[in-house]
Write a protein that binds this DNA or RNA. Structure first.
Lengths: 125, 125
DNA sequence: GCTAGATAGTTTCCAATAGATACCAAGGAG
DNA sequence: CTCCTTGGTATCTATTGGAAACTATCTAGC
């Protein structure tokens, strides 16, 4: 089923679906959602697991996902303070699709790299 | 099936799957792939359909998708010249997942906007 | 002939974003 | 007293994104 057959047209500017898709189409958000699938995780734990993400971007992305109601943020008054992030029911309905995208990437990366080499060779000469 | 159970770990920096996921996690790329599902489309046709995309970003994104082997670019020596973009078989294997993401966005956007209002109210006071 | 319009881009400039790094407060361990 | 942890924020710079103008080629209209 394509999007055009729906009540909303995702190709339209100002389409609310676009606002949601813009948010979802973010590599860090997808990786974080996938990482949370196994259960609640702390801030620095995510930071250490997802190599290459900066503290600033991790904090920003977690805030956005929390605002969207996809994940929850729970503070435990330990010393030092512990903050746990977990998937909300709404976020859980998304993880199948996110995993499917990650799985597609892994399955097809060799074909993509082959295509890239062919393209570069054809366009360098 | 989570990514962690695969041979590659998508959370690792330098993981080839991450390179592919980074490319896919782009709102314009996803919209273009979805738009091409119905058959070949010309440059300016895509530009007019996908409201808000600039010529520069459309050209860049199409080039990347072509380099990845997801879409084809065919030039017809008409006057003025016609350039048609179409899904390659590799790109076609991806459209189900892309459509699923767009469909999820549309189904759940009301829940997300409700969550956003609740978050903003709780954090503005 | 001159101008307008279509094709598919490239170029230029500025604003917004991403990344790296440093810093903060509150303690516990040594 | 100093270093380590927690979960961030502040600052600065590099990269990217978006808006607009410019390119080239040919057709149609006046």
């Amino acid at each position: 089923m394509t999007v055009m057959q729906q009540a909303y047209n995702v190709y339209e500017d100002r389409c609310p679906t676009r606002l949601v898709l813009d948010r979802l189409a973010d590599k860090w958000a997808l990786l974080i959602l996938d990482r949370l699938e196994g259960g609640p995780v702390r801030f620095n734990h995510i930071r250490r697991d997802i190599k290459g993400i900066s503290q600033k971007v991790l904090a920003q992305t977690l805030r956005k996902l929390e605002r969207d109601g996809l994940i929850s943020r729970t503070i435990f008054p330990t010393v030092p303070v512990t903050v746990e992030y977990a998937l909300m029911p709404l976020g859980r309905t998304l993880t199948d699709t996110v995993s499917a995208l990650a799985h597609w990437a892994e399955t097809n990366m060799d074909a993509i790299f082959t295509a890239q080499r062919a393209y570069d060779e054809a366009h360098s000469v």
